[in-house]
Design a protein around this nucleic acid. Structure first.
Length: 523
RNA sequence: GCGCGCGUAGCUCAGUUGGAUAGAGCGUCGGCCUCCGGAGCCGAAGGUCGUGGGUUCGAGUCCCGCCGCGCGCACCA
């Protein structure tokens, strides 16, 4: 049991002892100020009302009732309006490194998900062109969320939905045909709503070279799906399942329906079947989510651009109308805002239809996979993101990815220079109390916060918390590294610091993995 | 007009689900430093958290109104 867990348990026992409700749930948190100790609780203030007495008096009674010798608590202070601040012995804190080293690749993981299944759908680009930066943000986000859920005990299916039916595909086919006609010497107009990108011309050329036997439409869709797969491969994202919209029709999932979605929270009724007999995107969207439910996914998460947010209420309303026992907030949505790409201080415009846009592959080629992943994840998904290409490409400590990877590489460098196999570093017999330098204590505390952070990031589906944490932890690791040497110290010191370096290396690596960023051992 | 999101230091952004004196990086100013691995380290200045109310022991965080920005409001997806 960690020190914090013991304090919490004692708080509950003491609180019940002085007449608090049976369901007391003390919040124990790490104070911002080091002058406020290692852990703090607001329990006395929360109990002030039910117990009808002053917070500070309650705090004193709690303090007197608690037995904390075995938790390594060296001091308790009552401060401010009624906070209780706890100080833990330095050696006791540092001994947490034992858990990190023992858990190694599993450090930070938990079993909150208990093996339940969850479907995470992301990217889901139409096969009408290459993947652009928006898809990139989605790919990074979806993949990180999926990994985060896996790390917290869920069984995750990563899913990609292809809209390979409908008007957009007609437009695609017509656009290619127009270029094809041009190639054959008969000038033709790209249709209204069609695609003008250079890749359309290339498709036409390839089709006339080796497209015999199949329709332009089939050829274009197949080729563009292949392209997108290559983009995703370059980005290191793998899907477990590709779901084709066209299969909804062949499997008869789509029926002729009109839903009065206003009865289920929408602001107006929605058309599901058009005059020409084809369906609006809304109907297949609902049908698609029905298949998710029927395939056994009691939990589903959709990662989408915020420009699609209007589908949220509709899809949910549609599912409710079918009365299948789906919960009202199924599926869950993670929406992300737009991406602006900046290069040399100027915005690089993205316009898919006009054909001049930044693709995922362009970015990966220019700044590398790790930087693209990290940059897409370093901001909250619901705020707009500025992608600074120059910064992402730079090999300097101003670049957060480089800075974090460098911290990890430095830890590895210590082992390399010392001729030590990192995996052989053990916490056995280490005198943790020698890790008493302020920089050491700070770093250790940050490392030990990792599991709680992973839990909250997974719960809120916010990978950016991991990104920020890594930057801060890397900073602490650099500070420590600069100020204190590991090798060639007194034997006790070297052994303890090796354990710390190992702990830092493990946490940084685990965190980077979670974001899909590699953790190189040397740079 | 309606819906969703955002507004925090000069810039880019955090803010532990309502806690104590609101933080970091970059930039600016002043001073140290040459290391296991490459210019790092210390300090300073810089804020009515868009704005006006409300909820309570306590609000950047929750509720309501306004202002500004982005996105959406198609028988396009």
């Amino acid at each position: 049991m960690t020190a914090a867990e013991q304090i919490r348990a004692e708080l509950i026992r003491a609180a019940r002892g002085i007449g608090a409700p049976e369901d007391v749930d003390p919040l124990l948190e790490r104070p911002r100020e080091t002058a406020h100790g290692d852990w703090a609780t607001n329990l006395a203030m929360v109990l002030a009302k039910p117990l009808r007495s002053k917070p500070r008096e309650i705090a004193e009674r709690l303090r007197d009732a608690m037995k904390l010798e075995s938790a390594g608590v060296s001091k308790i202070e009552i401060a401010g309006p009624g906070f209780m601040n706890f100080w833990i012995d330095t050696g006791r804190i540092a001994s947490g490194l034992r858990d990190i080293i023992a858990a190694d690749e599993k450090f930070g993981s938990n079993s909150v998900g208990a093996g339940r299944v969850v479907n995470v759908e992301f990217v889901s680009a139409n096969p009408t062109g290459p993947l652009h930066v928006g898809h990139g943000r989605q790919a990074a986000l979806g993949d990180a969320i999926a990994t985060l859920l896996e790390f917290t005990g869920w069984k995750v299916t990563r899913e990609f939905y292809y809209n390979d039916a409908g008007v957009q595909i007609d437009n695609l086919a017509a656009s290619v045909e127009a270029r094809l006609s041009e190639l054959r010497g008969k000038p033709a107009q790209v249709p209204e709503g069609g695609y003008h990108g250079e890749y359309i011309r290339e498709l036409a050329e390839r089709y006339s070279a080796d497209g015999d036997g199949q329709s332009v439409r089939e050829f274009a869709v197949r080729e563009l799906r292949k392209e997108q797969d290559l983009d995703l491969q370059a980005f290191g994202v793998r899907f477990d399942h590709y779901f084709l919209e066209s299969s909804l029709y062949t499997d008869g999932m789509v029926d002729d329906l009109w839903l009065r979605t206003t009865e289920f929270g929408d602001d107006k009724d929605r058309v599901m079947r058009k005059r020409d007999g084809t369906y609006t995107y809304f109907l297949p969207d609902v049908a698609y989510h029905v298949t998710k439910w029927k395939r056994g996914f009691k939990r589903a998460i959709d990662v989408q651009g915020a420009d699609h947010h209007s589908t949220v209420t509709r899809v949910r309303a549609g599912l409710q109308a079918l009365d299948m026992g789906v919960s009202q907030n199924y599926p869950e949505y993670v929406l992300h805002q737009m991406v602006t790409v900046m290069k040399h201080g100027e915005e690089v415009k993205i316009s898919k239809r006009a054909g001049s846009y930044v693709t995922v592959r362009d970015l990966v080629n220019e700044v590398g996979r790790d930087a693209v992943r990290y940059f897409f994840l370093m901001r909250k998904s619901d705020s707009q993101l500025i992608f600074n290409v120059d910064l992402a490409a730079s090999q300097s400590e101003e670049n957060p990815v480089y800075y974090i990877q460098m911290a990890h590489a430095r830890m590895c460098g210590i082992f390399r220079v010392g001729g030590i196999d990192p995996a052989s570093v053990s916490a056995e017999g280490v005198k943790f109390e020698v890790l008493s330098e302020p920089e050491e204590q700070e770093l250790i505390k940050a490392l030990l916060d990792f599991p709680a952070l992973v839990e909250s990031a997974a719960e809120t589906l916010e990978p950016h918390r991991i990104a920020n944490y890594l930057l801060e932890t890397a900073r602490l690791a650099h500070l420590w590294y600069h100020k204190h040497h590991v090798l060639e110290q007194a034997e006790d010191v070297t052994r303890a610091r090796l354990a710390l370096a190992r702990g830092a290396q493990i946490v940084l690596r685990n965190g980077m993995r979670m974001l899909g960023v590699t953790a190189p051992e040397r740079m």
